[in-house]
Amino acid sequence: MDSQPTKPRLFIGSSSEALTTLDLVAGELADVASCRAWPGIFEQNKSGLASLLKEARVCDFGILIATQDDLRESRGTTQRTPRDNVIFEFGLFLGAVSPNRVFLLAETGTALPSDLNGINVSFYTLELGKHNSLPTVCKQISQLIKKLSSQSELGFLPSTALAVGYYHNFVRPLCKYLHQDGRVYLQNQSQPIHVRSFKLNVLLPADLSSNGVNDFVARYNRHHNLQAAATEMANSQKRGYPFHFRIDPPEQDLSAKVEVQLFDVPTTLTTIVKSIDLCLDSSFIGKDDNKQYLKSRELANFANVLQTLVDDDDNAKSYVEIALNIRL
């Protein structure tokens, strides 16, 4: 399953005096991330804070570069410190993105706030050949970005929680039922089809429309001649697991146990669309690259989480196929 949409987005912030260093950092990390530097993210007719908050919502990682730009006297000692706005933005991105995905890159000798005492901070020097030269430190961060990009964690948007719920409420019990009972009822038919073996195909569309997945489900089923089915009859007092269904190969004797293909598009994906609309400004009509990126990222994360859960379930791992980027 190919579930990586694009390179992750990396916000890089600094003081104006450190823009040369920022460009060096962006160059070192360009292979692993799509770098977005602070001078280019501020929008016309919006406050700087509003632009930063929006950037924190649409980025996967952040780096704030702390350089010796200011002098501060504290308890009789003069220290060289970073700009206040750099520390503020570091805290903002820590809270909005993740403490695991936001890094403070500090020039050697820079006095940092005491709140950071005891926390590992990446100190760098521009002197090449040193153990903490800027290219060396950036390589360490690059390796960490690669590692974290393949992992999932709870964030502001809900794809991780949705995937966990979908697995526990649908995929796992359906697979367990089919292994133990193996009966499927087609829509409007009272006699069950007995299942010998099955494959559950979980379909994740390449894009999520503003209406969610219902339109995609209807068109996909019509295009592939799929029939509605469930584990219980429609008038049964028991709650069945609904899905769409195809006998494959089609010439099997229905009086005996058959091989079947089951298809499902998680309707819970609609929650992702609604969450992104709430997260970002929806006051205009037209293409929004940030929304498209978030949809792609959340779909990929949903697929990754679900695949991890399926791979750890003996009832599911050989019987569930997750297909990402499905187009009609």
Rank of each mutant, 00 (worst) to 15 (best):
H131S: 14
E298H: 05
L299H: 00
S3A: 14
S318W: 04
G286W: 11
N188A: 09
D2T: 06
T270H: 08
E232W: 06
R183A: 12
N325F: 02
D60M: 03
L254S: 10
M1Q: 04
A163K: 09
P173V: 04
E73D: 05
L10V: 01
Y220E: 02
V32F: 09
P242E: 12
Q44P: 02
T160I: 00
Q292A: 15
G165L: 01
D70A: 02
D31N: 11
D2M: 06
S133R: 06
F198Y: 14
L200S: 02
P173S: 05
Q140S: 13
N132M: 04
T125F: 06
Y167M: 03
V25R: 10
R72W: 08
L174E: 12
K295G: 00
N201L: 02
F245N: 03
Y220L: 14
D277R: 07
T20S: 15
S296K: 15
P5Y: 10
P113F: 05
D253P: 11
E127P: 01
S149T: 10
V260S: 05
K46D: 09
A30L: 04
A37N: 10
Q307G: 15
R101C: 03
L254D: 03
G129Q: 11
S47V: 00
Y220H: 12
L154W: 03
A228K: 12
Q180D: 14
Y241T: 00
R297A: 02
I12T: 09
G95Y: 13
A111S: 13
A106V: 09
D84N: 11
D84A: 10
T81M: 03
P173T: 02
Y166K: 00
L22C: 06
K295C: 04
A218D: 15
A303D: 08
V310C: 12
A18M: 05
L157V: 07
L203Y: 03
D115S: 11
I247W: 04
N132A: 05
A256E: 15
H223A: 15
P158K: 01
L126W: 01
A33E: 06
L294N: 08
G40E: 14
N225P: 00
F170Q: 07
I119G: 03
E43C: 01
S283W: 09
P205V: 00
F11D: 05
S122Y: 14
T78F: 09
P242W: 07
G13V: 05
S142C: 05
S142M: 04
L328H: 15
N117V: 11
T231C: 08
F245T: 01
A26M: 02
D288W: 07
E55S: 12
T271V: 09
N235Y: 15
L280I: 06
A96P: 01
L144S: 11
L226S: 03
K257M: 14
A18E: 11
W38G: 02
F156C: 02
E107D: 04
G240T: 10
F61T: 05
H244W: 12
F88S: 09
R83G: 11
R9D: 07
L162C: 04
